[in-house]
Design a protein around this nucleic acid. Sequence first.
DNA 1: AACAAAATGTTATAGTGTTACATATCACAG
DNA 2: CTGTGATATGTAACACTATAACATTTTGTT
Lengths: 160, 160
Amino acid sequence: MSQPIADHPFTPHDHQQCIDQAMARAEALCRRQRARLTPLRRRVLELLWQSHRPVGAYELLEQLRTGSRAAPPTVYRALDFLQRVGLAHRLASLNAYTGCCYPGESHAGQFLICRSCQASSELSSAGVSRSIRQATAAAGFSVEQQTVEIHGLCSRCRED
Amino acid sequence: MSQPIADHPFTPHDHQQCIDQAMARAEALCRRQRARLTPLRRRVLELLWQSHRPVGAYELLEQLRTGSRAAPPTVYRALDFLQRVGLAHRLASLNAYTGCCYPGESHAGQFLICRSCQASSELSSAGVSRSIRQATAAAGFSVEQQTVEIHGLCSRCRED
DNA sequence: AACAAAATGTTATAGTGTTACATATCACAG
DNA sequence: CTGTGATATGTAACACTATAACATTTTGTT
């Protein structure tokens, strides 16, 4: 498994580097998959990567509207595309969306979400996946999709 | 940890027994906590336990309306109460609610949800909790609430 | 019986997401 | 090139989920 885009989103870092890397890997991924990263979809992905805080669809919509007009389906379709090709995730417990830190790699989305700074960090913990598989296998259940969203306080916010 | 109310919700069972046990344990829990299980709240809890399929708030509302009138806040307040005292859970990935199988016991809600029969099963896997704690501790994150919702196919639906 | 607290009723509205259909853009075969 | 089908976007209306604000009723306690 290669390096995640943001290894420690809760700690200070050069965020422009996250953005640059995310966009570069998105370009590469779409080229490989022959998926069309149109200007609109690219713009939405850039908006998602403005910070590590998951963003609501209507918040994205507001930002899209500076310059052009846009209606809900516009942003939802872009988000659908980004999720389909594996560039973004939806966080069900927040009704919000975030850029994927492991683009192009099969992984179960597992998220830490800080209630103080609202940033989220995407995990890809083999241990968590394994224990889930074990617990479900015991019940004869075949897993197709995992929603693992852990709310709490990040290391940085715990200090304050 | 005592017996869950429904051990194997995906397999055929005497469901009336689930209902009876759920209501009995709810009565007992509310008595202990000096919480008021009013007729309305009781009715909503009974509706939740009609099956193992999580139910949307507006679906509950429809059923409440047979006989009396009711508006959204009515059902949402009842659901808030049931969640507060630990008799029900909200499934974020479904926008739906379900009766709690471990009433009165502190536990992280972990759910298996079958996309075919739509039933859900509440786990309380120490292994999953532990692996989550381990993965988060490594990141210095303090967990306050877990959302673990696993979608897939239950043993019964896999056979068909 | 009187009061305060808790629960419920009522109306309106906020927030999130989809349907349906029209228009525009793109990729590719001819 | 250029027509054609597939893909993407625009637009308007609407469905679903949840909450706010305030009035009224019920309950538990003095």
